[in-house]
Design a protein around this nucleic acid. Sequence first.
DNA 1: CGAAAATTTGACATGACTCAACTGGAGTGG
DNA 2: CCACTCCAGTTGAGTCATGTCAAATTTTCG
Lengths: 190, 190
Amino acid sequence: MYSSLVAHIAKFVTLDESEKEVLCSLLTYEKFKKKEHLLKEGQSGNTQYFIVKGCTRQYIINEKGTEQTLQFAIENWWVTDYLAFHNNTSSQFYFQAIENCEAITLEKSNMEIVLEKVPKLEKYFRLVLQKSYGASQIRIKYLFTMSAEERYHNMNNRFPEFMQRVPQYMVASYLDFSPEFLSKIRAGKT
Amino acid sequence: MYSSLVAHIAKFVTLDESEKEVLCSLLTYEKFKKKEHLLKEGQSGNTQYFIVKGCTRQYIINEKGTEQTLQFAIENWWVTDYLAFHNNTSSQFYFQAIENCEAITLEKSNMEIVLEKVPKLEKYFRLVLQKSYGASQIRIKYLFTMSAEERYHNMNNRFPEFMQRVPQYMVASYLDFSPEFLSKIRAGKT
DNA sequence: CGAAAATTTGACATGACTCAACTGGAGTGG
DNA sequence: CCACTCCAGTTGAGTCATGTCAAATTTTCG
């Protein structure tokens, strides 16, 4: 049940059997149907989610009432509002399944317990965060240096399969332009 | 010499004297004059910097040859290109002192040694990264939901002192618009 | 099959950029 | 301590990338 997480951890640190047991005793497993929310704005951000299967997005609703996708996540990524998680406040973001999903959940209080008992996991989570933060830095770089059209082509080249999985209007907001504009880019040049 | 870092760590985990000694034996201390670079694009990103004093920025040079500031950092922040640091590749960013600065440096190889000997620091760095990543998520949110003018006023309200310390053209590029435009915002409304 | 959601298309609007010229202040060196 | 330069900031005119809105079309899915 938790084997995909255990396998992911094994890429970074080596756990023995008893450590794995401690960890697994503190996890839960949840399924989310397409469009269901893992976490909503305003809810306590005290849980993080490891995506076992499927695809999720992080979004907000702006003052005009439209949704803006800030991030996607697929298999083997941890997601949550880390500022809320860090400060024990409520989430500023929605996290939603955009396909049927399965996720492993870890509450902050349980995380603290398991880190106490299995300190090796500090390294694991540090590395996961280091990678996520690095990805976030690059994302900002792309937003700053590329035009809307370039961002679209760049994403299309780097993640062609992914673009099939996700509705265009979510991609458009992820790349920070309107769905109509995306449609026009596609019309201009397959 | 390293007391500001030791104090910062103490906010997150408690080290005993011998642990502090191990840590300090693996650090170096560097001063940077205003406009000097801590790290340049293309150089190995194998070092992270803890800002003791002063202010730095992370920037890139875009295809038009103009600089774009992606992030500022002041006292008590760690900076580096974390993707490069993670993957042992070269930095995609410039990191530059915008005031005379003092920084504590930690090389990746030394970081690995100290984490081996003082595992408590895994927690410290995990928390630092968790916070940085959270801040980065929020930054993307602001870029997406606010107009250029709103981003300026928001920043002005939240960091009035900081705005005094930094040239306007850097603020403009940090907020992702032109210096001329910033000048016009200011003209329209103190 | 029908309703709702997603995408496309076109006309029009505008926020922000570019470029160029001007102003003012901070260093620098004679 | 003045004169000169240079860089940051300002201002205005013209432009363009992308947004908005509304209507038409296609796709999805109960």
